[in-house]
């Protein structure tokens, strides 16, 4: 379970105060798949970094029941170690956690098989396509055995077909592992297709606008689900929310950059 309570983040720097996150409170239940959408520059990445413990919040709390947390970053090319082979990349966090070799080996094999890369153990990440690199990052997260999985716009930089494949992959992984999954995206369709619930954020300073339960059937399919009238309704509802928000992009667009 993941609980975010009264989270607030203010960046202070270069004589400028930017309130990236005003006040966020939400809960993701154990084993739930929740998506976070919002207009660009709304502090989605900041939120995720606060939850992952990479950034201290200005105030408020993040409570995570169960350990560990795994993160899949948007920049797959920069989040894999280019000097390690695929299997070594997946293995490194387990090595750091001092897991015995035999168990490590087994978890690496399983995780790579789960993402369809059973025969890529010995490749270097940069020898793979973008989509395959992101699969390696997902395999690394799975192998880590997390109780909470955080994903920061993981498919934003891959082409449409690969993206569809990866969406289905992540749903099957989630169903198999039963992890609590928080998936940040700016793509409304993706959020409706993937999650059980969509948390819609306002533009910065960020608040929760609405919590929408996605009551689509559990078995989803790129063709039938996206053609479902209910899909269109949910999509329109979220779209209306985001459209209604005053556009503050020009003013706050840099909050995202400030966080790195």
């Amino acid at each position: 379970m993941l609980e975010v309570q009264g989270l607030r983040k203010v960046y202070d720097g270069h004589g400028r105060r930017v309130e990236a996150i005003a006040d966020l409170t939400f809960t993701v239940g154990g084993g739930e798949f929740a998506c976070v959408v919002g207009p660009s520059g709304c502090g989605k990445t900041t939120l995720l970094r606060c939850i992952a413990g990479l950034l201290p919040p200005t105030s408020g709390q993040v409570r995570v029941a169960g350990e560990p947390i795994a993160v899949v970053f948007q920049e797959y090319g920069r989040s894999l170690f280019p000097w390690l082979r695929v299997a070594q990349n997946v293995e490194l966090p387990l090595k750091a956690a001092k897991m015995p070799r035999a168990q490590r080996q087994r978890q690496v094999d399983e995780a790579l098989a789960a993402v369809g890369l059973a025969d890529a153990h010995d490749a270097y990440p940069w020898q793979l396509s973008g989509g395959m690199q992101q699969r390696v990052a997902i395999a690394r997260a799975i192998a880590y055995g997390p109780s909470v999985l955080l994903m920061d716009e993981p498919f934003a930089a891959v082409d449409a077909q690969t993206r569809a494949d990866l969406e289905d992959l992540i749903r099957s992984v989630w169903q198999r592992l039963g992890v609590t999954l928080l998936f940040v995206t700016h793509d409304i369709d993706e959020s409706v297709y993937l999650g059980q619930r969509v948390i819609v954020l306002s533009s910065a300073p960020t608040r929760v606008v609405e919590n929408i339960v996605i009551d689509l059937p559990g078995e989803r399919d790129q063709l039938t689900t996206r053609a479902d009238p209910r899909f269109a309704e949910l999509r329109a509802r979220i779209y209306a929310h985001i459209k209604k928000l005053p556009s503050q992009r020009a003013e706050h667009g840099s909050t995202h950059d400030l966080s790195r």
């Binding site: 560990p68 947390i69 970053f73 920049e75 920069r78 989040s79």
Partner: peptide, 14 residues
């Protein structure tokens, strides 16, 4: 690389 450094932090590679 900062993303790689973040990766290490989040996977407790210390």
């Amino acid at each position: 690389d900062e993303v790689l450094a973040d990766t290490c932090r989040s996977y407790r590679i210390t």
